[in-house]
Write a protein that binds this DNA or RNA. Structure first.
Lengths: 227, 227
DNA sequence: ACAAATTTAGACAGGCTTGTCCAATTCGTC
DNA sequence: GACGAATTGGACAAGCCTGTCTAAATTTGT
């Protein structure tokens, strides 16, 4: 695959397949049992390989852990940016478009397997590997928030929103649409599709009450009239 | 020592002191190292007692862990309800009163030692002890949210806020005032006083833009005029 | 000051885990 | 079908940890 005279620069197919299989199993076990409680034999069994193969591929437990975190970070970031690319820049119905976006974000990035695993590893072992997780922090949330803030700024500039500080608004948007899922996240659970939708609906409604510009805020007008 | 005619129903003074000392040290070590990585010798050393004393008091590692979680849950709940009792029911300046309340909540309940420890233990070991953490969930967040929702409902009834669903508003209030502290929480860190204040200020401003009734919303009027 | 209870330090067995080594086997490629 | 690389299973040493036991030292209440 890299460069080479003959087509053998990379090992046989199943070699790479086993590698990812091991990383996947390791992610699962590290999350369930914690770093100290994770058992290489169990990881090997769950990956369907022998223990020796784990050591052949990754050297030792710590290197394997690093590989897991790097892998999860990479995949999660890819998912997040792919989803941000679907942000409703020219909304037909701002409220329902933002709700749909929030649901996509949750389903594809936060609540899926990789997202839950990465979150738990960061929470549990973040303090033990400061530089590893500092890297994650820059590549992940730092860039995510900037990208999202830029999209909100654009919506505001187009007159769909009334925002003072787009960075603050972006963080508050995420906080609001996840407001009702916090406990589930804390316990490592997976919210149902219905819970995700309800939290997003309530969060977007409040977000638009706070930041909606007058011309598109049927919801807000109703709320004010009702008050 | 156990039963007796004379006033000795409870053990000698330092006996109980050592007990709490052990629980405190155990909380710290369980959080740093995780359940599997926590070492009884280290806990004993950090508590300033011998290993045997740990076993005398708590039986085994699992019982010690349970005692730690129960202890933290109890203290955190006490702190949270004490703080909710300071909710500004008759606000002089609604915005600054809510900011001050949010800062108190964070400082006394969420960011302090007990709060951080409990959060981390729940995140790391919640799945391993379902009934223990189900108990926490009912006693803690469940009651907290209800109590807070009741306070917000009262503010709305008095005309200070315009709220449809007080339960949703209470959860969103907490989500907003903590919006900028999420990452710090994730990594187990302790936000500075300044960060707590800024997050609370921004969160309350957005909350009032969404839920403030017209008569007390100088901030909101300014924002709208500015738009 | 005395007697009972508690604490301590250390040794200890049993179990589990990591990481290495090696011979036999399987797999992919030519 | 044959060659070479990767994989396997199992044995293995070394280390660590839990939980128990003991005898000596200390603390507590009276």
């Amino acid at each position: 695959m890299k460069p080479g005279v003959s087509p053998d620069t990379f090992p046989p197919r199943s070699h790479e397949a086993k590698r990812t299989s091991v990383v996947d199993a390791a992610a699962s076990v590290f999350c369930r049992e914690g770093y100290a409680g994770a058992n290489i034999d169990l990881i090997a069994a769950e990956a369907g390989v022998s223990r020796q193969t784990v050591y052949n591929h990754h050297g030792d437990k710590e290197k394997l852990f690093m590989a897991v975190v790097r892998d999860l970070t990479e995949r999660c970031n890819a998912g997040i940016f792919a989803t941000i690319a679907t942000f409703p820049d020219q909304p037909a119905d701002l409220e329902s478009d933002l709700v749909a976006f929030a649901v996509r974000m949750n389903r594809n990035c936060i609540c899926n397997r990789d997202g839950r695993f990465l979150r738990k590893l960061i929470q549990a072992e973040g303090e033990r590997y400061p530089e590893l997780f500092a890297e994650w922090r820059e590549q992940g949330p730092g860039r995510t928030w900037s990208a999202l803030a830029a999209r909100f700024a654009r919506l505001a500039y187009a007159g769909h929103l009334s925002i003072d500080d787009p960075d603050v608004a972006a963080r508050q948007f995420l906080a609001l649409v996840n407001a009702e899922l916090q406990i589930t996240f804390m316990l490592g659970g997976m919210p149902t599709e219905e819970e995700v939708l309800r939290s997003a609906t309530n969060g977007v409604r409040t977000f638009l009450r706070a930041f909606g510009s007058r011309k598109t805020t049927s919801v807000r007008q109703a709320a004010l009239t009702h008050a």
